[in-house]
Amino acid sequence: MSSTDTLFSDALFSAALAAQARAHAPYSRFRVGAALRDEAGAVHAGCNVENAAYPVGTCAEAGAIAAMVAAGGRRIAAILVLGDGEALVTPCGACRQRIREFAAPHTPIHVAGPQGVRRTFTLDELLPASFGPDNLA
């Protein structure tokens, strides 16, 4: 990883960690933070927001994507998802599809725990042979 990649990865980790601390997870108590870098290099973060009506909650990745779009970003250059526990906290299926809307197959998806990045996948590894905007062109 180049020093620029490390710098961006550190910025994503810091933003995801701050977002995770603000998560609204009174039911599961499982806080998740996510941060992404858009095509202009801006960082956008989100956290999970649970709701007493469980299907109405929002994932951290969805929050970060919404923040990016609201700020004018249109492409995800990289994304980091941060969760506690021993298991890797990868994006859920719905969030993989949300990421696909704004990312290329080679886009890095960093999966992190409290101490840092645990593993990096490409979008294509997590969502192979996916359906996306180009299918509707």
Rank of each mutant, 00 (worst) to 15 (best):
M1G: 07
M1P: 04
S2K: 02
S3A: 13
D5V: 00
T6Q: 05
F8H: 14
D10P: 08
A11H: 11
L12S: 10
F13Y: 14
A15D: 11
A16M: 11
A19M: 05
A19F: 01
A23D: 01
A23R: 00
R29P: 00
F30D: 13
V32S: 01
L36F: 06
R37D: 07
D38E: 06
A42P: 02
G46V: 08
N51P: 09
N51D: 14
N51Y: 00
Y54P: 15
T58L: 04
I65P: 14
A66M: 02
A67D: 12
V69M: 00
V69I: 08
G72V: 01
G73M: 03
G73P: 02
R74C: 03
R74Q: 10
R75I: 05
R75M: 01
I76V: 15
A78G: 07
A78R: 10
A78Y: 09
I79P: 14
I79F: 03
I79C: 04
L80V: 07
L80G: 06
L80M: 11
L82W: 06
A87G: 02
L88P: 06
V89W: 00
C92G: 15
G93C: 02
A94K: 11
R98P: 04
R98V: 00
I99Q: 11
I99C: 05
E101N: 12
F102Q: 06
H106N: 08
H106I: 06
T107D: 04
P108Q: 14
P108R: 01
I109W: 00
I109N: 03
P114S: 08
G116N: 12
G116F: 01
V117M: 14
V117H: 03
R119W: 04
T120H: 03
T120M: 11
T122L: 09
T122H: 06
L123A: 07
D124P: 11
D124L: 01
D124R: 07
D124Q: 15
E125N: 09
E125M: 14
P128V: 02
A129T: 04
F131D: 03
G132N: 07
P133R: 08
L136V: 07
A137G: 03
